[in-house]
Amino acid sequence: MIEQLPNQDSRSKPPVTLRRHSVDLLIPLGWSVLMLVPLIVFLFATNSLGFVSQPEVEAGLWLFGGLYVLFVVNFFMMQWIFWYMDVWIILPERLIDIQLISLFNRQVSQMNMDQVQDVRVTMQGVLSSIFRFGNITVQSAGKVGFFELRSIPSARNVADLITSYNKQSRTVSAEGVTTSATHPPQRLGEMLVNQNVISPSDLDMALGEQQQTGYRLGRILLDKKLISREDLVRALGNQHHVPSLDLSRYEIDPAVVRVMPYEIATKYTAIPIARSTEAITVAVADPSPENTSGLTAHFDIPLAFTVADEDYIREAIIGFYLAGQDEGNNNDPDNGNGSSLEDLGIE
């Protein structure tokens, strides 16, 4: 168990360190034993057939036999290191994924618990069923995409723990939003200038164009390539205290999309992306309170919002509503009046 991680809140619960189940070491162990078989057969054959008559030959056999065993031991140790260095650490506020990709190549990724959208457990195979381990896929709303925790012992319990931490983090975030709601949000242009994403002169120019055209500031800055899509999404998320999402890397649940009628999706540039027991997560291009409250008014169930790039949302709307319509009118956008909530088991 780890005593204290860097940047860890000392008041938070101790971290849970996970490694793959030790059954995963059986395969490299099997290979190592198999590699020793030819050596044993060779030594046995040379001895029993009487080939070892000269002391130099016998000494050579022992020396090179020892070397062979040394390489087999090294091979197994390397496999053990790959097993040992793949670590997942679960903290109440984040999930850390440490992977040894190859020798001298290590990758450490982090995912905030409040960005976890979906946790899936899969248990496949005889060994997995006998020894009760499985793979856990944690889908994130962040840029990291998803984490795959492989061969985790007591996978269902671990998945439950991640889900409970996610719930806690979302509650804390919601409290933060409530607190911040009493303060007026900072202007988008000022935020981008303060973050040195654009210069004050760029902002003046964009504001001038906004007055002439009436377009939104973010769109103007994006069209002039003064900011990237990621910059805009991140800034909007920070401005309204809403998590941001890279929709291009996110796998939208097709079943949940039907919850929102096509007209509402296009009107608010929004698309449902995931569901939990508490709420439906909706990706919106404009996370302002006016927009989100207007959207919430159309639903009887709680909505959780995440901000995503407007173009990606439009592409997703076309892909899920209009493409489905072309295939046989089964997903008629006019028909999506929210009645499919029952199909989804949402009360």
């Binding site: 002391p55 130099e56 016998e58 000494a59 020396l63 020892g66 065993v69 031991v73 090294n74």
Partner: peptide, 22 residues
């Protein structure tokens, strides 16, 4: 790991030396 590695190396060299001297 070091114990096993050193054991294998020292053991094999020792046996080889004994075999050579006999």
């Amino acid at each position: 790991y070091l114990l096993v590695v050193l054991g294998v190396v020292i053991g094999s060299i020792s046996v080889a030396v004994i075999a050579f001297q006999l």
